[in-house]
């Protein structure tokens, strides 16, 4: 088990480290620059989408959906970050408490 833990952790660290040691000149090529700027947007939006709609391999609409909707309204109203986060948690918790959503 320890071997598995160390190899897997090592591999994850190497990935984090590799991205940071790519030569500056290479990153400054327009095509690479455009891709690296768009990648975090695509990855983070996809992550939020999965965190909101996925339940294992199935898609569901549960309390997370109205919660994200409520947090979008808070964002539109220029609420501070902490308020956006609390609004989402509160919405999901209340809807689940009253059994309106899973």
């Amino acid at each position: 088990m320890w071997t598995t833990i160390l190899i897997a952790s090592g591999a994850c660290f190497v990935l984090k480290w590799l991205g940071g040691v790519i030569p500056r000149e290479w990153l400054e090529k327009p095509v690479v620059g455009h891709i690296t700027k768009l990648l975090p947007i695509a990855l983070l939006v996809a992550l939020v989408t999965v965190q909101t709609f996925a339940h294992g391999k199935s898609l569901t609409i549960d309390a997370r959906v109205p919660a994200l909707g409520a947090s979008m309204v808070a964002l539109k109203l220029k609420a501070p970050f902490i308020v956006v986060v609390v609004v989402a948690a509160f919405t999901a918790a209340v809807l689940r408490h009253f059994g309106l959503f899973n």
Partner: peptide, 29 residues
């Protein structure tokens, strides 16, 4: 129970939101 799954998604969303500035960003998102 405390809605924390939704809180993490909303937190990340709030952080990506200001990064989406151009039409290309919207399409990519």
């Amino acid at each position: 129970t405390f809605g924390l799954d939704a809180a993490i998604a909303a937190g990340l969303f709030a952080l990506v939101w200001p990064q989406i500035k151009t039409k290309t960003h919207v399409i990519v998102a």
